[in-house]
Design a protein around this nucleic acid. Structure first.
Lengths: 342, 342
DNA sequence: TTTCCACACGCAAACGTTTTCGTAAGGTTT
DNA sequence: AAACCTTACGAAAACGTTTGCGTGTGGAAA
C-alpha cells in the first residue's frame, strides 16, 4: 500500500529542495522551466495533492464550514444543507455536518469539537434542549474566539449574530388568512409547546390573522403538542366531535395526522374540512389529498446563511462588526387539502 | 475579539516552556504538582482547547470519517448517516458529509478533497453517474493511498473493499412472495432502469419469486422507469386498464404514485389491488393507506459500515488485508396497502 | 581582471502539538 | 568531599506546507 506522497519525497527523488518543489508546482519564475516541468511531471505521476491539514495549520484557516442541525433525518434541514453545500462548494469551502439530535450536550460537544480547529465558522440551528435550557455559552464562546456563527430557523434572540429566518408569524398569518378567505370560520390550530420558538411564532400569526378578521380566538381550538412522535391520539381526542371547518397545522406531520384522524372520524378533507400545513416536504407533496402548505424555502435559507457566513469569513474587519438578519419570504403553496367552501 | 489560546501563549504568560505546559496539562509526573495546578488553572481560565489541526498533522490522522452520498435530501441516506454518526461519536470520530448530487464529477472532487487530509477513511454510496460510467479510479486511488473505503447500498462489484448492503434481490423476493401468498396472481413491478444496481437486483428478486410460484413472467407487467421525478404519467399509462391484482414498487415514490394513479383510475388500494413498496420512509409510514413495505434498516447499515471502517482504521495490519461484505437483513413491514384477497 | 547582476535554487521560520532526550540544581549516599 | 540519583524542567524534532531572504554560479559589462 502506497502512502500519500509529500513534497519532501518528491524533493528527495528529484534531488532538489522542498522549497524548489513547492515553488515549481506553483509555476514560480524563480524556478527554471526545466525544473518546473520535471517536478510537475513527477508530481502528476505520483498523484501529488497538497495536504489540507498542513495548509490549514499554516494558513490558520480550514476552508470548512461547520453545520450543526437538530436532526439529520429531517427533510427541511437537509434541504437547507443542500443550499449551504451549493454556495460553499462554489466558493471552495468544505461542509462538515453534525447533528445534535436535539440534545444540548451533543450540541456543545459538536460545536467545541469543530471549533477547535476543524471549521472556520458555523451555521447552526439550535437543539430543542438548548431552547429550553437557555444556555448559550457555547455559542458565545465560539464567537468570542473569532469564529463567526450564523443561526437559522431555530434561532436565539439573545445571541447577537447573523441570522436567517423565515417570518414564521407572517407565514402562519398567510396560512390562516387563506383559510379565512376561502370561507372557513372555525379554525383549529395544531401547534407545539411554547418553548419551541417557531411553534410559538406560528401560533401568534394564527391569532393575529383571526383578530384581523374579527374572528374571536378560542382556547379550545388550540392544541399544543409536546410529544411529536405520539401525536395521533392527542390529535384524535382534540378533534373529536369538534365543530370546526378548518385546521392549521404548524408542521407536516401534524397536518397528515389530522387528515388521518379526520378520515377515521368520518370527515373528508377537503370537502368537510380544510387543512393547511407548514413546511413543504415530501409528505405534503405526495399525500392524498396533497397538502396546501406554507413553504419555507429551505434551500434558500441555506444559500443565504452560507453567503452571510462566507462574507464574514472573507470580509474585511469593518464588515465583520455588523450583524444582519435575513428574513426569507414564505409562500403559500396551494394544493388539494383546502378549497373554497361553497 | 479574543483569539484562540495556544500552548505557546500559556507558556509565555506563565514563564515556562511549551513542553512544560503540554506535559502539565497531561498530568505528567515529570512536572511538579505545583506547576501542574498552576498551568491547569490558567488553561481552564483561558478555555484552552488543543488545536485539532495541529494534532491531525502530528498524528497523521484526523479522527474523521468522510461520508459521501448521492443525495442529501433523502430519507434513507440520512438514516444511514444517523447510524454512522452514532458509532463514530462513540468512538471519538467526527463525521464529515458530502453529497455528490448523483454527479460523477462532484463525487470525484469531494472524495479527492476529503482524501487530501480531511478524513482517515470513507463511507460511500456511489452516484448514479458513476454507476453508468463505470469509472472507479477515484475510489481505487483513495484506497491505494492507504485510506480504507466502505461502500454501502449502491456498491460496485468491481471494487474490492468492505461493503454493506442489503440483499435487494431477496428483499424483493420476500415482497413478491408476500403478494403471492395473500392470493395475488398478476403482479406488476415498477422498477428502475437496469444500470441502477439496486433496481436491477430487485427486479431479479421479483422474477425469482414468480418462478418459485410457477407464475409466468410477463414483459408487459414490468415497467422500467428512467426519469424518477416525472414518473406519474409513465406509471399512469402503464397501469391503465391493466388486468392486475398487485403492484410491487421498488421504492416509496413509485409506490405512492401508483396508489395515486390507481385512485384516479377508480381502483382502491388495498381492496381492488395490493401494493407493496421498498424502503421504509416517512411516506410509507404516514400515507393513507399506510404502505406495506420492505425495510432496509438504514440506521443499521450506517452502524455496520462505520464499524467496518473503524475496525480497518484501528486494526492491526493483518485485519487490514481482508475485506468483508455485510448483508443486512431486510424485513417485511406489514401495513395497510396489501391484504389477503377473499 | 574586477565588478555587477540575473538566475536558480536552498535555508529556515512559522503554524500548534507531542514526545524523546538532555541537563541543571539539589539532595543523598559513601 | 566525591560520586550518584532525583526532580523538574527545557530544547528540539517531527508532521507538511509556504515564502522571504540569502547565496553560489556563471556570464556580461567596465
Amino acid at each position: 500500500m502506497k502512502q500519500k506522497v509529500t513534497l519532501k519525497q518528491i524533493a528527495k527523488e528529484l534531488d532538489v529542495s522542498i522549497s524548489t518543489v513547492s515553488k515549481a508546482l506553483k509555476d514560480s519564475v524563480e524556478i527554471s522551466l526545466d525544473t518546473r516541468q520535471k517536478v510537475k511531471a513527477f508530481a502528476k505521476l505520483y498523484n501529488y495533492k497538497p495536504n489540507n491539514i498542513a495548509l490549514s495549520l499554516k494558513n490558520r484557516k480550514t476552508k470548512t464550514i461547520g453545520v450543526i442541525i437538530p436532526e439529520i433525518v429531517h427533510h427541511f434541514f437537509t434541504t437547507v444543507i443542500g443550499g449551504v453545500e451549493k454556495v460553499a462548494n462554489e466558493k471552495g469551502y468544505n461542509v462538515i455536518i453534525c447533528s445534535s439530535n436535539n440534545s444540548f450536550d451533543k450540541e456543545v460537544i459538536n460545536l467545541e469539537m469543530l471549533a477547535s480547529g476543524s471549521a472556520d465558522g458555523f451555521i447552526l440551528s439550535v437543539a430543542k434542549e438548548t431552547q429550553l435550557k437557555k444556555d448559550y455559552h457555547h455559542i458565545e464562546e465560539t464567537m468570542s474566539q473569532g469564529m463567526p456563527v450564523v443561526l437559522f430557523d431555530r434561532i436565539i434572540d439573545e445571541v447577537v449574530c447573523d441570522k436567517v429566518i423565515i417570518d414564521d408569524s407572517k407565514g402562519a398569518q398567510t396560512a390562516t388568512n387563506h383559510l379565512l378567505s376561502i370561507g372557513c370560520k372555525r379554525i383549529a390550530i395544531l401547534t407545539t409547546v411554547d418553548y419551541i420558538s417557531v411553534g410559538k411564532l406560528r401560533t401568534n400569526g394564527y391569532l393575529r390573522a383571526l383578530r384581523a378578521y374579527d374572528v374571536p380566538e378560542r382556547e379550545d381550538l388550540i392544541l399544543k403538542i409536546e410529544d411529536i412522535d405520539n401525536c395521533e391520539s392527542e390529535i384524535s381526542d382534540f378533534l373529536k366531535d369538534k365543530d370546526i371547518d378548518a385546521v392549521f397545522a404548524v408542521n407536516e406531520l401534524f397536518a397528515v395526522t389530522a387528515v388521518k384522524v379526520l378520515n377515521n372520524q368520518g370527515k373528508k378533507v377537503p370537502d368537510d374540512i380544510a387543512i393547511i400545513g407548514f413546511t413543504d416536504g415530501i409528505l405534503s407533496k405526495h399525500f392524498i389529498p396533497s397538502l396546501t402548505t406554507i413553504s419555507q424555502h429551505g434551500e434558500d435559507m441555506g444559500v443565504r446563511a452560507a453567503k452571510l457566513l462566507i462574507d464574514k469569513l472573507e470580509g474585511d474587519e469593518a464588515a465583520t462588526e455588523e450583524y444582519r438578519t435575513v428574513i426569507i419570504d414564505t409562500s403559500l403553496i396551494q394544493r388539494q387539502s383546502a378549497k373554497k367552501t361553497k
